[in-house]
Nucleic acid binder design. Structure first.
Length: 452
RNA sequence: GUGGUUGUAGCUCAGUUGGUCAGAGCGCCGGAUUGUGGUUCCGGAGGUCGCCGGUUCGAGACCGGUCUUCCACCCCA
């Protein structure tokens, strides 16, 4: 048998115990808040039929889809012609499933397939990995977790407000304060594109607009001009981006022909957030925000860390007709997504993880002999029955070694079981931080440990 | 997918123009100390220098390929 060196596919990672306790810390907070806001959890398969996935994320997205080779003799249904027609065509012959690319399209499929069982508005959350055949970088992985909350089948503005409050609560609970929620509306972008004369190239227009903080206004203006945009109108749009007064911005938007209803919606959204919710809400209207998947049609939103150089740590928006592609018309939805892995990276870099989240027992029992060890069987079991996280050093060993181990795992207390203790019925409970120890009866030991 | 970048002990990194350059610190294991850890002291184990091939009398250092890391483009959580 040949020995192979173990390795991991590019852009994927193992998560050891310390990393997992931190990831769980984040997930638990997100999940707790999802539930608090009335969302119910669902899960969907890692793989979907390619017919569900393809064409939903644009050409770029299709390229980033992981396709699964058909089982068995995957060439049996292909001909020489299929190969000659190129890889794109051939793919359809040898692969019919793919790994999920996000959680929104699977949700749309789920809603359509279960429309008769679902009560609308349908509020669901989903925390699962997704896969993209992207080139990995810092904060960019080929396998990563999304934590989505969506409200399907409601057009009310309260949904947007509620999701904004939810975002705020989660970041507050994580103690991650250096972030900003940027919002924009697709209708604004469409109007801008029309204004500069790129009505039929809105995608290209948005792509350029999105690069403003990266390459600067001047180069964006150049690029737009190259696309055929009118220079004076470009300048008008760019100046609008810099306007800080929200009232003036909304007025100017009205002047350039943005739908009145959309403007009043945005206005109502900010008015709602301005009400006292006893929270610091960090939302900012950013007219140059042009990202988001191709299916967003209304408000779009992105969460940026202001403390760390990192792509967005969350995003979301409203999609008026997500289920339309699967034959269910007239269902509007709005959703947000937390990027677990990026939130992790940000929190790690900012050292925001509390120290006490590592999983460790409350007490470790140490001993001197086989007899002591056996005597401790009942003790450790008794402690556990009281709900105390107790661990017993599993074999006889030097007491020094056992204390060394206690240190390594960071256990706050050790309970010493030796001949003295067995004879007196009083067990030595040692506080590992102070080094103080005290002989105590078992019920007193339990009382002390329960306090912590 | 395109261009560039990185890769030496578990970790962080030294290693001069190819010729005792296979090293340090930390960590790990053992002992000093068989009823007491975090300090100290002593000792020890670990690497075919990412992998494959080439140039050379000789390669960790040079060349090619490949994998990985990070960066830019693209796009995104």
């Amino acid at each position: 048998m040949s020995k192979t060196k173990p390795s991991l596919p590019r852009g994927t990672r193992d998560f050891g115990p310390e990393i997992m306790s931190k990831r769980s810390f984040i997930i638990d907070i997100i999940k707790k808040n999802f539930i608090k806001y009335g969302f119910a959890q669902i899960e969907t398969p890692a793989m979907e039929n390619l017919s569900v996935l393809t064409g939903k994320y644009g050409d770029e997205g299709d390229q980033l889809l992981y396709k699964i080779l058909n089982s068995g003799d995957f060439l049996s249904k292909t001909s020489k012609e299929d190969i000659e027609k190129g890889s794109r065509h051939l793919t359809t012959k040898i692969s019919e499933k793919g790994l999920r690319y996000d959680l929104t399209v699977p949700l749309a499929r789920f809603v359509v397939m279960n429309q008769n069982e679902i009560t609308f508005p349908f509020k669901r959350f989903q925390i699962q990995p997704v896969w993209r055949a992207d080139r990995p970088q810092k904060g960019r992985y080929r396998e990563f977790y999304q934590c989505d909350a969506d409200i399907i089948g409601s057009k009310g503005l309260w949904s947007e407000v509620e999701l904004t409050l939810l975002l705020t609560d989660v970041f507050h609970d994580l103690r991650l304060e250096d972030y900003i929620i940027k919002i924009n509306h697709r209708a604004f972008l469409f109007s801008f594109a029309e204004l500069v004369g790129l009505k039929y190239q809105t995608i290209s227009f948005c792509t350029e607009i999105d690069k403003i903080d990266k390459i600067g206004e001047d180069r964006v203006a150049e690029n737009l001009k190259a696309l055929g945009a009118n220079i004076s109108q470009i300048n008008e749009v760019l100046s609008l981006f810099k306007e800080n007064d929200k009232g003036i911005v909304l007025e100017r938007l009205l002047n350039i022909g943005v739908n009145k209803e959309v403007i009043s919606n945005i206005n109502s959204y900010f008015e709602a957030l301005a009400m006292s919710f006893d929270k610091k809400i960090k939302v900012e209207l950013d007219l140059s925000l042009a990202r988001g998947l191709s299916y967003y049609t209304g408000m779009i939103l992105e969460v940026k860390s202001t403390g760390v150089q990192m792509g967005s740590i969350g995003g979301g928006g409203r999609y008026d007709d997500l289920t339309g592609v699967f034959g269910l018309k007239g269902i509007s939805g709005v959703g947000i997504s937390f990027g677990l892995d990026r939130i992790y990276d940000v929190m790690e870099e900012l050292k925001l993880f509390p120290e006490e989240i590592a999983s460790r027992p409350d007490v470790l029992i140490v001993h001197f002999s086989e007899e002591n060890l056996k005597h401790a069987y009942r003790i450790v079991s008794g402690l556990r029955d009281k709900g105390i996280k107790a661990e017993l050093y599993p074999e006889t060993a030097g007491i020094r070694k056992q204390f060394d181990y206690s240190d390594k795992i960071g256990v706050p207390y050790t309970l010493i079981v030796g001949d003295n203790e067995m004879n007196s019925g009083r067990y030595m409970l040692k506080d590992m931080k102070t080094g103080n120890q005290e002989p105590l009866k078992m019920d007193e030991v339990m009382r002390r440990l329960k306090q912590n």
